[in-house]
Simulated assay, not measured.
Amino acid sequence: MNKSSNQPQNKVFMWGYQILLLTVVLFLLFNFLFRNEKIAYVDSAKILNEYKGTLEAKKAYEVKAKVWQSNMDTLTNDVKAAIQKYERSIATMSKTEQDLSRQLIQSKQKQLSDYQRGIQENAKQEDGKLTQAVVSQINAFLTNYGKTHNYKLILIANQLGTIAYARDGLDITAKVIEEINDEYVKGKK
C-alpha cells in the first residue's frame, strides 16, 4: 500500500521536476541568446555637424569656393571695365571699333557665364565628394564602434523622424562624437 500511494506523489514530483527543469533551461537559453542584444541609435545630423572631419572638409571646400569667387569677381570686373570703356569712348570710335568693342564685351560676358556654370557644376561635384568621404568615414567608424561595443544594431536617426520613440539611454550620439573626434585627432598626428 505504501508503494501505490507513493506512485502518484512520484509522478507529480517527476512532472513538477520536469517543468522546473524545462523552465530553467528555457530561461538560461533565452538569457544566453538575448543577454547582449544591445541596440542604440545616433543622430546623423548631430554627428555630421560635430565631427571634426566634417569641419575640416567644410574648411577645404570654403578655401576652394573663395578661389572660385575671386576668379568670378575678376571676370565680372573685366566685363564691367570693358562696358565702361566702351561707354566712355563710343563717341570717338569708328563703326568698326564699336563693333569690335561690342564683340569683346560679348566674349567676356560669355566667358563669365561659362565660368559661372562650370563653377556651379564643379561646386556640386566637390561638395558631393567631400560629403561622401565624410559619410564613409562615419559609417566605417560606426561599424567598428558597433563591433567593439558589442551592439547588435545601431540605427540612424534624422530630421525625417525615422525613430519615433526610443527609451532613454539608447542615444549614443554624444559617445560616438567624442570617440570619432578622438580617433580623427589621433589620425592627424
Results as ranks from 00 to 15, higher is better:
Thr131Tyr: 11
Asp99Met: 14
Phe32Met: 01
Asn71Ala: 14
Leu33Met: 06
Gln109Leu: 01
Lys188Leu: 09
Lys80Asn: 10
Ala157Ile: 02
Leu22Asp: 07
Gln116Ser: 11
Ile172Cys: 06
Ser5Asn: 14
Ile156Ser: 10
Glu56Pro: 00
Asp168Phe: 07
Gln116Thr: 00
Glu87Trp: 04
Val79Pro: 01
Lys38Asn: 11
Asn36Gln: 09
Leu170Asn: 07
Lys129Ala: 10
Ser44Asn: 05
Ser89Val: 05
Asn10Asp: 11
Ser101Gln: 13
Arg88Thr: 07
Ile163Phe: 08
Gln106Leu: 08
Asp43Tyr: 05
Leu29Gly: 07
Ser4Lys: 15
Gly187Ala: 03
Phe34Asn: 01
Val185Gly: 01
Asn2Cys: 10
Lys58Asp: 13
Asp182Leu: 13
Leu21Tyr: 11
Gln109Thr: 03
Asn49Val: 00
Gln111Pro: 00
Asn150Phe: 09
Ile163Trp: 02
Glu178Gly: 03
Thr143Ser: 12
Tyr61Val: 07
Ile172Asn: 01
Met72Ile: 07
Tyr61Pro: 01
Ser4Arg: 10
Glu178Ser: 10
Lys85Ser: 13
Tyr86Leu: 03
Ala140Pro: 04
Ser89Tyr: 12
Asn36Asp: 13
Ala82Asn: 02
Phe141Arg: 01
Asp168Ala: 15
Val79Thr: 06
Asp182Lys: 14
Tyr165Met: 04
Thr148Glu: 12
Ala133Met: 14
Glu126Ser: 08
Ala164Ile: 11
Gly187Ile: 03
Gly118Asp: 07
Trp15Ser: 04
Val176Gln: 05
Met14Pro: 00
Asp73Ser: 12
Gln7Phe: 15
Val63Leu: 13
Tyr145Gln: 00
Tyr151Asp: 05
Lys108Asp: 06
Asn36Arg: 12
Lys110His: 09
Thr131Leu: 15
Lys3Ile: 15
Gln9Cys: 14
Lys38Pro: 01
Arg117Gly: 13
Lys152Gln: 11
Thr162Asp: 06
Val67Lys: 12
Leu26Cys: 12
Tyr61Phe: 15
Val42Thr: 00
Asp171Trp: 02
Phe141Ser: 06
Gln69Met: 08
Phe27Lys: 03
Asn181Ser: 05
Thr76Glu: 01
Pro8His: 00
Tyr86Met: 03
Asn6Leu: 15
Leu170Val: 05
Met1Tyr: 15
Pro8Thr: 02
His149Glu: 15
Phe30Tyr: 13
Gln18Ile: 12
Gly161Ser: 03
Lys186Asp: 03
Gln103Arg: 15
Ala60Pro: 03
Leu55Gln: 09
Leu29Trp: 13
Asn36Tyr: 14
Ile163Lys: 04
Ala65Val: 02
Tyr86Ser: 08
Ala81Arg: 10
Arg102Leu: 08
Ile163Pro: 05
Gln111Phe: 05
Tyr151Leu: 04
Tyr86Pro: 00
Thr143His: 08
Asn139Thr: 02
Glu37Val: 10
Leu29Gln: 06
Asn36Met: 13
Ile156His: 07
